[in-house]
Amino acid sequence: MSLSLDDVKRAASLARLEIGDAESQRILDQLSGVFELIAKMESVDTDGIEPMAHAQDMMARLRQDVVTESDKHELFQSIAPAVDADLYLVPKVIE
C-alpha cells in the first residue's frame, strides 16, 4: 500500500488544503516514511478481533429533552470574521 502523488493531492482536495506541486512531492516523501511505520500493522493477523472505537466499553448516556441554552449570538458573533444582519457571511454559495 504505497502512497502516490495523486493520493496526496486527492486527500488535500478533500481536506480543503491548498498544496502546490513541489510541496506535494515533499509531503509525499515525508508521508511515505510515516506509512512505512503504519505498514507494520500488516504483520499481524487481526481476523475476528472486534474493532475498538472507544477507550471505555460503555453505552451512550442520554440527555433529557429540555432547552437549557439561551441566545448568545452577539457574544459568539463578536469573534466571527464576517457578520451582517446576525448572519455569518461567506462568499456566495452556488448550488
Binding site: 440527555r63 432547552v67 437549557t68 441554552e69 448568545k72 459568539f76 444582519a85 446576525d86 448572519l87 455569518y88
Partner: peptide, 21 residues
Amino acid sequence: ESKIFSGASTNFGALPNTQAC
C-alpha cells in the same frame, strides 16, 4: 423541544443564530 446534541431550542422562526448555542 431541544436539539439532538445540544440544549438549544428547536422552535421555528427565531431571529437568525439566536438558537445556535
